[in-house]
Computed example of a mutant assay.
Amino acid sequence: MVDACDVLVIGGGPAGLATAIGLRARTDLTVVVAEDRTSPTERFGETLTPGALAALDRLGLADAFRADGHLSCPGGISVWGGPRPGHSDHLLDPRGPAWHLDRRRFETRLRARAAQVGVDVRTGTRVVTTGQESGRTTVGLRGPAGRSTTLRPTWVVDASGGGSWFARRQGAVRHTRDRLVAVLRLADLEAGTFTAQTAVEATPTGWWYGSKLPGSRIVTALVADRGAAADLLRGGGRRWHEELAATTLLGPLLARVRLRGEPLRCRPVTVSRLDRVTGSGWLAVGDAASERDPITGCGIHDALLDAADAAWTIAAATGAGGQPPWRYEDRVEARFENHRQTRDALYAAERRWPAEAFWAARVPRPVAAT
């Protein structure tokens, strides 16, 4: 049996759920979200930049977000481009502070809001096939207990993350600009105090990141070349701990506290984008459209902006709203280009170790005009 729906969103992360909520706010379209995970995944060190509350307010979530216990971040401290710490703060930013996220809580709130506005959120549901039937797209889903259904959506939103499951099956090609790895430790803060600021420090191997998280936890990560991961983890992470002890900012901050740490773990960090983010009856949002380097701190905020633009684009295409004064693909391209320029400027500012492999590989490259 084939069921019709107006919009199928593949992926239930922030980009997909925000798109679904935005569509229901603008239209009466039927929206289905297919999410493979049954519960949100724990993520570490994710931050919402100043101004993100405006995006959440458009989704009807700003007040709930403030009440959910996410940790306000007053700014950052960094050792980058030289030996002296530099500071940035959000205290006078009219858009408000940044926020260290409890990612599980954040995504749970988005799921609840989506269901509240009438989105059919199907967790534990994997997208397994796509095809054409009588000139219409069909998508096969496998739900809990192996139950299979087929949907015939008018629109498909690919929010499946860096794999871009649907877009690649429509011929879109993913271009990767960089591949990194974050070797990280999550720890409970047992005694002492740790700054609410985000701490970033460049070293010859890569760059360190440390921040306090909701629930008195601290994440510490070294972002390095993927080839360095095995060496950093060898012997119980001996080299990782040695390099942390040698830092001039993060090491002393952590020396003031007592932690109960978990084992080191690795997370891939990819900078990439699709060669096209729209097609006939589909578009891609969030990481499915383009993945960011976390050094810029704009990943989730940009995903929420993608979602808002996607909802407006689909509403207009289905006759449920006025035509936006821009093209969706241009907006996504502009955000990624802004990220690229910011990233290149940051890496170019750190030239203390030009012969080290990590930094030599990230000398900004010219980008051909299109």
Rank of each mutant, 00 (worst) to 15 (best):
L304N: 02
L305A: 08
L305P: 00
L305S: 01
D306G: 05
A307I: 11
A308S: 08
D309A: 14
D309V: 10
D309H: 13
D309G: 09
A310E: 09
A310K: 04
A310Y: 01
A310C: 04
A310S: 08
A311W: 01
W312C: 12
T313S: 11
T313I: 07
A315I: 10
A315K: 03
A315Q: 15
A316Q: 12
A316P: 00
T318P: 13
T318N: 12
A320D: 15
G322P: 15
G322D: 15
Q323D: 15
Q323I: 08
P325T: 08
W326R: 12
R327L: 07
Y328L: 11
E329F: 04
E329S: 13
E329Y: 05
D330A: 12
D330E: 11
R331V: 06
R331Y: 02
R331D: 02
R331G: 03
V332P: 07
V332E: 14
E333R: 05
E333D: 13
A334K: 03
A334D: 03
A334T: 06
F336C: 12
F336S: 15
F336P: 01
F336T: 14
F336E: 15
E337R: 13
N338S: 12
N338H: 10
R340V: 11
R340L: 15
R340D: 14
R340H: 08
Q341R: 11
T342W: 00
T342V: 05
R343L: 15
R343T: 12
R343M: 12
R343S: 15
A345N: 12
A345T: 13
L346K: 00
